[in-house]
Nucleic acid binder design. Sequence first.
RNA 1: GGCGAGUUGGCGGAGUGGUUACGCAGCGGAUUGCAAAUCCGUGUACAGGAGUUCGAUUCUCCUACUCGCCUCCA
Length: 453
Amino acid sequence: MTQSAPTLRLRNSLTRGVEDVTPLDPTNIRLYLCGPTVYDRAHLGNARNVILFDLLFRLLRHDHGADHVTYVRNFTDVDDKIIARAAESGEDIADLTARTTKWFLDDMAALGTLTPTRMPRATDYIAQMVEMIEGLIASGHAYRADGHALFSVSSYDGYGALSGRSTDDMIAGARVEVAPYKRDPMDFVLWKPSDEDEPGWETSLGYGRPGWHIECSAMAKALLGPSFDIHGGGNDLMFPHHENERAQSCCADPDAGFASVWLHNEMLLVEGRKMSKSLGNFFTVRDVLDKGVPGEVIRFVFLSTHYSKPMDWTDRKAAEAVATLRKWRSIAADGGAPDQAVLDALRDDLNAPGAIAELHRIAKAGDGATLKASAALLGLLEDDMGAWADGGDEAVVEAVLAARVTARADKDWARADALRDGLVAAGVVVTDGKGRGWEAGPGFDPAKLEGLV
RNA sequence: GGCGAGUUGGCGGAGUGGUUACGCAGCGGAUUGCAAAUCCGUGUACAGGAGUUCGAUUCUCCUACUCGCCUCCA
């Protein structure tokens, strides 16, 4: 569709540098994002790479055409954490994963993320996993021991290249799981036996279930092929998850190379610490939404820090985002085209903060059409995301405004000032001469206007 | 201990070998009945040290500090 699509540059974890991305197939650019293990609500940090990949997806669709990008984001619905959670609550595993999958989709939709092209569930790809494991065993990259199938790390010279560590270093750390059946302490599980009361599949490998990592290798291969363009996730997945995925896939298809670019985002912080379940300092996306922070505001805050840097979530940032988005929404108009500088910023390693700076420039110039079309690349100012910015209860506000106009015309300054103070107290920002003449500001509460007129 | 990322003005946060980031807040002005909103103007900040260079916040090295991974984690 495009004669010469613009060049995208990305930071590739594999080479540790920002480089031009050359699509393997310009008519079908393929992305894979490690999706959630479904056993609970997604916490706010989980949203960061979803929003990052949504931005990437939007940009690629713009530059190459919507039909020329395939974006896969999986659900891992078989995992020991799921088994443990179900055992705690007594809930059926299928019900648990279905419920939390729905939660994830709802929460990510609230953040204005596009639906990926494909959203495979791991349990639908057991056969592909088994096939891959059998192949690895046949080629000597994996072995069976004590009912398990294990990947042999020493069989792959490239092991450690992604995360930048040698197996010697890792063993020196002495934090690897030791198991008597492992030939090498670093070897990891591809398949493990299940008890009667654990989920399992009867396969050529015996009754059991997959280990972590193999599901992504199998689903990526099934849906994108043995090689594809961009693979990503949080940088805490780089080791061991992505290192192991890469080892499996590269050994299963030695000539393919798996992912060309590895895109990792930095962590979300809370009070300077990584937000994580093990630290117990996390709150969910739903918590924030329920607190009254619109999804669009969350998205704006996330995009205002480059993905390669840690980001602190603060109420102050959210408040600033609210003000900016309200202002932008008041001037946004249809019929524009994306601004070149915004596109340039995004193509340069997804520099969303730089793009936002350009949006400020466009807004200041009063070009509402260009603003809206450009913001759409970042998933901002979309029509279906803006309900939060509507004032609501307009009649009450309009009545007070009208009364104030009358009072001012009568030069009844005392009454005019009283009405003005009432508006301010109710969080109404009077914008004489602009738009409808007022906006909902911080703490907007029309109930406080009762009795003023 | 190993590996990696980072340290920019009051706050947030880009970027660059020599010229303005940008936003918020602040300050000055215009406007206003007084305000608000709006508009105009305003801030030489780049952790410390050494080096390369005509010139470094921007490249190299060292130091300090912060954070992450090495164990489930996005």
